[in-house]
């Protein structure tokens, strides 16, 4: 029984952009995030598929997570559960992932969290950054990097970015 409250800074739940030197981390509010899995899910979706480095449109798209799993961003609402017709499993995970856009001189910051380069593409957007599981891809402008981090680790990710930015 030990009170460790003082060892842990209160989470900021950021609503406003965080300045990271030459870059900037902006919280993004998405209408909906949906996890969809199925044997043919990559072929079935009408939404544009996004991989690494990717080029996600500003409205709705499908980020590839696995060979049989997508994260639908801002897709129309569909019922959770197993759909026998489409052979798809669906779960609403809107509140499971906190989303940020990293703009400005982003690559040096990302390079502190992972051995990563846009020159080496990947079919999946899922990777580890600073040891935390994230989904990471670029938006259509090829300058904005979007990150989805499990909500409970959002504070750790922001702090990692701040530490990385402090080294200039």
């Amino acid at each position: 029984m030990r009170d460790d409250t003082a060892l842990w800074d209160a989470p900021r739940n950021p609503a406003t952009p965080i300045s990271l030197g030459p870059a900037r981390l902006t919280p993004v509010h998405l209408t909906r995030q949906t996890l969809v899995s199925g044997p043919n899910v990559l072929q079935q979706t009408d939404l544009p598929l996004v991989d690494w480095p990717g080029a996600a449109p500003s409205d709705a798209y499908a980020a590839i997570l696995r060979r049989d799993r997508l994260l639908l961003v801002n897709a129309p609402e569909t019922p959770d559960g197993w759909n026998d017709t489409t052979q798809q499993a669906t779960s609403d995970v809107t509140d499971a992932y906190t989303v940020f856009d990293l703009t400005g001189d982003a690559l040096p910051l990302l390079g502190r969290g992972a051995e990563i380069t846009p020159d080496i593409p990947s079919r999946s957007t899922a990777r580890q950054l600073f040891g935390l599981g994230v989904f990471l891809y670029r938006m259509e402008d090829a300058k904005t990097y979007r990150l989805h981090v499990p909500r409970a680790h959002a504070e750790a990710l922001v702090t990692h970015f701040e530490k990385a930015a402090s080294h200039g």
Partner: peptide
Amino acid sequence: PFCGPRDERE
């Protein structure tokens, strides 16, 4: 096999 080359820490 799906994602391509990645750091061993993954």
